[in-house]
Amino acid sequence: MTAGAAAAVPPTHLAVLRLLADGELHSGEAIAARLGLSRTAVWKALEKLAGLGIEVATLRGRGYRLVEPLELLDAGRIQAGLSAGARARLGGVEVHASLGSTNSHLMELAKHGVAGGRVCLAEHQERGRGRHGRTWVSPFGRSLLLSVLWRYDFGIAGLAGLSLAAGAAVADALRAQGVADIALKWPNDLLWHGRKLAGLLLEAAGEAHGSSHVVIGLGLNLSLTPRQAAEIDQPWVDLATALGRPAGRIERNRLAATLIEALIEALDRFGREGLAPFLPLWEASDPYRGEPIAILIGSRTIDGIHGGIAEDGALRVLTEIGEQTFQAGEVSLRPPRRT
């Protein structure tokens, strides 16, 4: 997708949202005067925001306010939150109100030679994806949706295990922000008390023995209502719950900078040292080793015991015919039902 997809949220509607983002009461007359709009245009903008899942309270005769304040993402504030080292490796930050998919956007830019280190964030994704083609539910402003493009001077086969390195880095960064009991589920899910908090999606292209590039996408639930999350087809949780604090106290730009920094450092280090330095961090965040699992590969289901992670990032499964390793597949942590 290209930047043009952001037109799904017109500039007028974004301008109204920026005024309301502080959570304070604003009269329709004041909004119209401030932005040079008609009262009808203001009303249409508020209707559009409601359609995006943004809850606007109407106080008859007094005005409008957001039910919860919203810190909108800002490229300048995010870059300012990065260390000098991360900024030096950065290829630019772009923020979109709405985009088809941050991963698809960067993969398209990569085809046209955009330098590595480019970061893309969106307040909302129209076609956000998880693994196996699943839809990633992303109400406007209720998640962190970001992708990072990185280039390597080795072939695509050398990327094995990169999603594990990225997951370990993100888990470590969230733990430093106060998220206790965070767990990693192979190959790229982050769980809290058994429920999905975040997921990673890696897409790569390149030559077998030449150069390659990769886009790593991160989707992190920040604050979802049950109604907004009704389409999620698995147990879920959001960061506000995991931190035990109101969503309004989560500084989205600061958190985005923290996670981008962690991903940039992980991508850079992986290029120099491979997966090895990340394995101890992964294992420290994997409470499922020794537990019964089922791995689904197409129409096949293999039952066994989670035996840990191999040096190349493959999943080790102890089955009735001995240990097997898997580079792909979907893991179920629930013991399979016996018939």
Rank of each mutant, 00 (worst) to 15 (best):
R18A: 12
R18D: 03
L19W: 08
L20D: 00
D22S: 05
A30L: 13
A30H: 14
A30W: 15
I31N: 02
L37F: 03
K48W: 08
G51Q: 09
L52M: 07
G53C: 02
E55R: 12
V56G: 00
V56P: 04
T58W: 09
L59I: 14
L59Y: 12
R60T: 15
G61H: 01
Y64P: 09
R65I: 11
R65N: 04
R65D: 07
V67A: 14
E68D: 14
P69R: 13
L70I: 13
L82G: 00
A84I: 10
A86M: 06
R87M: 03
R87V: 09
R87K: 08
R89C: 10
G92L: 03
G92P: 05
V95K: 00
V95Y: 01
A97N: 09
S98N: 01
S98F: 04
G100S: 14
K111S: 12
V114Y: 07
A115R: 09
Q125W: 10
E126A: 14
R127I: 07
H132Q: 12
T135G: 00
W136V: 11
V137N: 04
V137Q: 10
R142W: 06
W150Q: 03
I156R: 13
G158S: 15
L159Q: 14
L162D: 04
L164E: 13
A169M: 05
A169D: 02
A173E: 07
L174S: 02
L190E: 02
L200Y: 10
E203M: 07
A204K: 04
G206N: 05
E207R: 09
H209T: 13
V215W: 04
V215C: 06
I216N: 07
S223W: 15
W236G: 03
A242F: 13
G248C: 14
R252Q: 07
L255R: 03
L259D: 05
A262F: 00
I264A: 02
E265T: 14
D268R: 02
L275G: 05
L279G: 01
D286P: 01
I295M: 01
S299V: 14
A310R: 11
D312E: 11
V317T: 03
E320W: 05
E320T: 12
G329P: 00
L333A: 01
T339H: 07
